[in-house]
Structures are given as C-alpha cells and as structure tokens.
Computed example of a mutant assay.
Amino acid sequence: MKNRGLPYRSIRKRSSRMVWGLPLYDIAMGPDPTNGELRGHARGIVAIGDFATGVLALGGVARGIVAVGGLALGLLLGVGGLCTGALAVGGLAIGGIAIGGGAIGGIAIGGGAFGYYAVGGGALGEHVIDGMRQDPEAVRFFGEWLPFPLEFPYRNSRN
C-alpha cells in the first residue's frame, strides 16, 4: 500500500508534573522523524505507546508493574497476547497464576495448562483436571479457589 504523500500520524504528549523522576503520563505513538524514532517509546507513571515502560504500561510492547499489550511484561499483572506477571491473563500466559489459551504457572488455567495445579483441555502438572483426569486434590483446590463451581459430568477410573 502506497503512502500517497500523506504524512505518518504520530502522537507525543507528556505531563509536566513529575512523580519519582518520571512524568505522570507519557504518550508516544507512531514514528517521530525529527528524533529518528520509528516507533514511540513512552516512559512514565502511566505510559501509552508503541513501546511503553511505566507503573501502568499500555502498548504493543508493555513493561511495568501492570502491563497491558501485545507483549505484556508485568510485575504484578500482565494482560495481553503473550504476557508475564504474578497474575498473567492472555493468549500465552506465564506467571504465578496464569490464565490463557496456553497457561504456564504455579496455578494454570487454560486450553493447554502446565502448573503445579492445572486445569484445562490438556493439562500437565502435579494436581490436574483435564479431559482424562480429575485429581481429587485439584478438584478440592479449584473448587475452593475458583469463584464458580466446577461441574464434572462423569468420574473416570483414572483419577
């Protein structure tokens, strides 16, 4: 697709108020030819950009205490296509508690789940609930931990 002479759109906004040496918010999206940036990198308490680094980071690649984005690297919470965090929720979630299509963590819930406690269509771990197995400890744990009851239509002999 040709550019047709139209300029690329970009956004740059930064708070003048500083907290812990960082701007309260920083927004950097799109290219900035004057500074030689192909993609915007936002750095602030709240950071929104192609690349975002902050306490709350929102962007294509987001890094922070709470990160939301395509690739989200969160310390406490990561939400995105591929994400990490103490609590990770996304397509491929890796964390202490991981919830996603593919989930890897101490507690893993997903289509494919790998963890100490794991529940999913295909699950691997010490205490597992999947299409073939229903470990009693996993049933007890998830029964107490999840906010909704787990209903199992059958009990198979391979517990």
Rank of each mutant, 00 (worst) to 15 (best):
G5D: 02
G5C: 03
G5K: 14
P7H: 07
P7T: 14
S10L: 00
I11V: 11
R12C: 01
R12Q: 09
K13N: 10
R14A: 06
S16H: 14
M18Q: 15
V19W: 03
V19E: 03
V19R: 09
V19M: 12
P23R: 04
P23L: 02
Y25M: 07
Y25R: 07
Y25C: 01
I27F: 06
I27T: 10
A28Q: 13
M29T: 13
P31R: 09
P31M: 09
D32Q: 09
N35F: 06
G36Y: 12
E37K: 15
L38T: 11
R39A: 08
G40V: 08
G40L: 10
G40D: 06
A42P: 13
R43Q: 12
G44I: 04
I45V: 14
I48E: 05
F51R: 15
F51C: 09
A52P: 11
A52V: 05
T53Y: 09
G54W: 04
V55A: 14
L56I: 15
L56D: 11
A57L: 12
A57V: 13
A57M: 15
A57S: 15
L58D: 06
G59K: 12
G59V: 13
G60K: 10
V61W: 01
A62E: 12
A62W: 06
R63Y: 02
G64E: 06
G64L: 11
I65H: 13
V68I: 14
G69H: 07
G69Q: 02
G70A: 13
L71I: 13
L71V: 11
A72L: 04
A72P: 14
G74W: 05
G74R: 10
L76C: 08
L77F: 10
L77M: 09
L77A: 07
G78I: 03
G81K: 01
G81D: 11
G81A: 11
L82K: 11
L82V: 12
L82F: 13
C83G: 14
T84I: 12
G85S: 01
L87K: 02
L87A: 06
A88L: 13
A88W: 10
G91V: 14
G91P: 15
L92G: 10
A93L: 12
I94G: 05
G95M: 07
G95H: 08
A98N: 03
I99Q: 09
G100H: 08
G100P: 10
G101V: 06
A103W: 00
I104N: 03
I104F: 05
I104L: 09
G105V: 08
G106H: 10
G106N: 08
I107M: 00
I107A: 00
A108Q: 00
I109H: 03
I109M: 11
G110C: 05
G112T: 06
F114Q: 02
G115S: 10
G115F: 04
G115R: 06
Y117H: 00
Y117A: 07
V119P: 01
G122Y: 02
G122K: 11
L124F: 12
G125A: 02
V128I: 15
I129G: 07
D130A: 05
G131P: 01
M132W: 07
M132I: 04
R133M: 12
R133I: 14
Q134C: 13
Q134V: 14
Q134S: 15
Q134D: 09
D135V: 08
E137F: 01
A138T: 00
A138Y: 01
V139L: 13
V139E: 15
R140G: 04
F141I: 03
